[in-house]
Simulated assay, not measured.
Amino acid sequence: MNSPLGAGLPDAGRPTLLRHAPYTWQPYIQLARLDRPIGWWLLLLPCWWASLLASVVRHSPPNLWHLALFLIGAVAMRGVGTTYNDFIDRDIDAKVERTRNRPLASSRVSPQAAIGFLAALILVGLAVLVCFNRFTLLLAPASLVIVAIYPLMKRITFWPQAVLGLAFAFGALVGWAAEMGSLAWPPVLLYLGGICWTIGYDTIYALQDIEDDLVAGVKSTALRFGAHVREGVGAFYVLAFGFIGAALFAAGAAHGFGLLGWLCLGAHFIWQIARLEPADGNLALRLFRSNRDAGLIFAAGLAAQAILQITSSAG
């Protein structure tokens, strides 16, 4: 049996997973946003960028084991963030058309059950984390502090997207630390680029909710930029492109496929800005989701460069 509410969230993609999942699982799939993989993709990509950049620097092949661990960790930690966010925002979500059918807002999951589910997801994330070196084990939990304060920011500042960026881009530090056992300028610059990227794409996402946010008293950069939202998103995409490029140059990796991937990432940013129509919520959602492809383009460039270096050395 399928839940009519489970398939009805306006911002969900094709509800294939929900259609085939047992009825009792559906609210938890929605809590963890497993029906909307774009969230964990955007959390995962900075991890992959940093890990692959480290491979380019070390002239080593991509660490497939670590890349797989980051995938599992991103899915779990995305679930941690969304479950916690929905728990904190359950009263606000009930007032917003796009979110009123979320499991906690619609009372399909109790607060107590959500807390138990949250604990289970944290354990999965911890199981992944202990597979890495000690430095990474000490570094990664700092992101949970950012995750904890993020839902509160939309109540007090027009810049919650900046706090979200601090959390979503944190993988740039973790991915490098997992390979190198330390930090350096390249991952820091990559982190700054990821923060700016997140502010840009989440501002686009927030365009869907402007009217409801005004009613609910929720703040966002989409509201802050107002009629200048295209310029605002464009400015942060320029900063993201600049910081990510600086990371490549600082790592001595601004060549070959890595450089090509970076230029293609910039071209994707330009395409998004050219297409953006602030009044078109459906288009905003499509552009937001397209950032998975933008991030994968850059990751593919770094992976190709790492592999090319190995094959060239072997030849």
Results as ranks from 00 to 15, higher is better:
Ala76Glu: 02
Gly125Arg: 05
Ala314Lys: 13
His255Arg: 15
Asp202Tyr: 00
Ile29Tyr: 06
Cys131Leu: 05
Cys131Pro: 00
Leu34Gln: 10
Leu31Pro: 07
Leu283Gly: 08
Leu34Ala: 14
Asp209Glu: 07
Ala246Asp: 06
Trp48Lys: 07
Ile146Glu: 08
Ile195Asp: 09
Pro151Ala: 08
Arg224Gln: 11
Gly295Tyr: 10
Leu5Ala: 14
Asn133Pro: 02
Phe241Tyr: 12
Pro37Met: 09
Leu9Arg: 07
Cys264Ala: 11
Trp185Val: 15
Leu129Ile: 03
Gly301Asp: 12
Gly266Cys: 05
Ser60Trp: 05
Val75Met: 11
Trp262Ala: 09
Leu276Asn: 07
Val145Asp: 02
Ala184Ser: 15
Ala279Phe: 06
Ile88Thr: 07
Val229Asp: 01
Arg14Gly: 03
Ala254Leu: 14
Asp280Lys: 04
Gly261Asp: 04
Met1Cys: 02
Ala148Phe: 15
Asp93Ser: 03
Phe170Glu: 03
Phe257Trp: 14
Ala178Val: 10
Ala169Tyr: 00
Arg286Met: 13
Phe87Glu: 06
Gly232Trp: 04
Arg286Gly: 15
His228Gln: 13
Ala274Lys: 12
Leu207Met: 14
Val218Pro: 04
His268Lys: 06
Gln309Ile: 13
Ile122Lys: 00
Thr157Trp: 01
Leu17Ser: 09
Lys95Tyr: 02
Gly125Met: 04
Leu190Thr: 10
Tyr28Met: 04
Leu137Ala: 10
Trp176Asn: 13
Met180Arg: 15
Gly245Pro: 05
Arg289Val: 03
Leu67Ala: 12
Lys219Asn: 11
Ala306Ile: 10
Gly13Val: 04
Thr157Val: 00
Pro186Ile: 14
Leu52His: 12
